[in-house]
Each structure stands twice: as structure tokens, then as C-alpha cells.
Nucleic acid binder design. Sequence first.
DNA 1: CTAAGTCATATGTAATTGCATATAATGCGG
DNA 2: CCGCATTATATGCAATTACATATGACTTAG
Lengths: 172, 172
Amino acid sequence: MKAVLGKRSQDIVEDQIDRGDYNPSSATFRLANSPFYLMAHADFKYHEDMDKVLHKHGVSKPIYRVMTVLRERQPASIGTIAEAALTKRSTISRIIDRMLEQGLVTAEPNAEDNRITEVTLTAAGEQRLRKLTPIVGRQFMRAMDGISNRDIAHLLRTLQKISANLSKLPIE
Amino acid sequence: MKAVLGKRSQDIVEDQIDRGDYNPSSATFRLANSPFYLMAHADFKYHEDMDKVLHKHGVSKPIYRVMTVLRERQPASIGTIAEAALTKRSTISRIIDRMLEQGLVTAEPNAEDNRITEVTLTAAGEQRLRKLTPIVGRQFMRAMDGISNRDIAHLLRTLQKISANLSKLPIE
DNA sequence: CTAAGTCATATGTAATTGCATATAATGCGG
DNA sequence: CCGCATTATATGCAATTACATATGACTTAG
């Protein structure tokens, strides 16, 4: 593609052609400048410290994630939880087993469709979650130190666009 | 902190106090507006499709991640790879075993310090990586569709700040 | 120069996850 | 109303991961 008058060719390359260094297929690509690597890195560090604290309260990372999903919509089916928690259904099925043993949730068949298992937080589950919330809140504040709410809003918009793009039909 | 003349109090609250809805301990918090959930979601979707394609080429997600680390610095020790690949050392040790079986890497003890295992991509490993690169590149372009390079640069800066914050001393 | 301490990796074992499949319930075409 | 396809979950089994610990190599105090 040729440069257009009034717009530097560099801009055209950067904005519309190949994403330059950002593209993992670029010769000058570096992980430290890769959006997806940095997302994974930030998410990893965020949970790394937190998991240790959560474990002291008998809650693993996947269990915590299921609890946060249930906080928003209850009751929820195994499939719904799996999708929201980014985990396979069979795995969620077993995580719910562990949560049942701990008395954190109940699991009842749906009255209208007996195939569906409806999972609900128990009072104990709700209480456990409330206990953990401030810990997670502090970690969040720590992560966002020195970042304006305007920048967080911008981050959200970009991440939402990326998620939406990737929910369209896949490659190949 | 007091309001400063010339700055609306709303800005002060939004920029400096409690992060409002973004904070996981807020009563109005929603996963769909949570930066860390969205990072995990975007990263998950990004790899979900890609892994299927990579598997056809005999490369799993962790193996691919190790290869991208090695592309940047070679040779690299088990510990170095583990840190960069966000995976435990013992796990990397076994992943390298599998890569050795596939002839993707060599592993030699460091001449000066015999404890260290130096891992290097073989010619076959380099070739495999080159073969996969355009596939990953297409997935990246798909993810970033409709997002300007300016926004990507902004995203990077914010993610780098978050990572830096989380690399400081942990909570509790 | 030696013994204790530290460091890097490897490995035994247990737990977790995912794939493939089984089971059971619902929906639908005829 | 029947049988076949589909859907939701559960489970046997294999692979992966992590924790705890072992092994071997370097480092350093004395």
C-alpha cells in the first residue's frame, strides 16, 4: 500500500497494515510489548499472591471463581457456570462436588428440566464470600495504584472489544 | 483527602478513593466490568481457538509458550523459562522433557555452573515455530480488529503499570 | 580446605483437569 | 405416540500440573 498525502506512511503502517511490533509474527515482536502476554502476566501475578491468602480460608482459585459467578446469578446451571468461569463442564461438575462437601453450595435438579443442576450458594457460602471480599478488594487497589479511573475505563473498553472480536467465528 | 479548587469532587472520588464499581468488594461490582476478569476472558478466547490449530501441528499451549520465550533469549535455564512462562519450575522441567522427545530443543548443562540446564531450540524447533507464527499472527489481527494502534499502545502501558504494581511486595 | 548453607533441577506422589463416553431427560419429526 | 437426535450432567481414564522432597553443584564462613 502506498503512502497517502497528508498522512505519514508510518502512520498508515502502524494504524492499518500489520500492527508492527505488536504482531506476534513480526521479526521485532517482544513478549514485553505483547498485549496478550501482558494480560496473562497481570492476571497471573494478581492471583498468585491472592491464592495463598484464599487457601488459608479453604478456598482455591477455581472455587473462588465459581463463587463470584454465583454471586451475580443464582441459581446457575453447571453449563452456565462453566462458561462464565472459563472452565470445562466436567471440571465444574467436580468443583461443585468439592463445594458441596464443604457446604458452600446446594445442587438441586431444575423443576421444569430434570437434566439441569441448579447450583446455589448456601448461607455459609455467602458468608465465606463476604469474608474474602475485602482481601480481594485490597489486592485490586494494590494492582491499580497510580492508574486513573479514566485509564481503567479505557482499559475495560479495549478489553471488551477484544473479547467481542474473539467471540466471532474463529480462524481456519 | 480534601477536594482541590478547580477539580470537581466527582473526579476526586473517581480517580482517587474507592474505584467504585471496578472494585471487586463493591456492592455494584459486575464481572463484565472487571479488568481482571476481562483479561482472563480475552486471554482464554484468544488461546481457545488457537490451541486447536496448534495441536494439529503437535504443539500444545505450554510448549508454544516455551518456544516464544526461547525465541527471545537462547539459551535459557529452566528457572528463567519458568518465570517467563508463568509456570512452576517442576512443570517446565517436564515440558522440556516432552520437547526433547519431539526434538524441538536441546538441553545441556552450563559449562560454568553444572546445576544449570541450558535449553536451546533446535533447527527443527525453529522451523516449527516459524510455521506457527503466521497462524498466531492472523489470530492477533482478528483480536485487534477495529482497535487503533494508539489504543493498543495505551492498553500496553496500563497493563505494564499493573504488572509492575503486582511485582512489588504482596498483601498480608 | 571443609562443612554447612544455598541454589538449580529432577522426580515421586497426589490432586486437578480435560477428553471421551455413559447416562438420563427433553424435543421433534413423522 | 414412538424413536431418533439433541442437550445437560456425570464419570472412567489418561495426561498435566503442582507440592514436597531428593540429588547434585556451587558458595562461603571459619
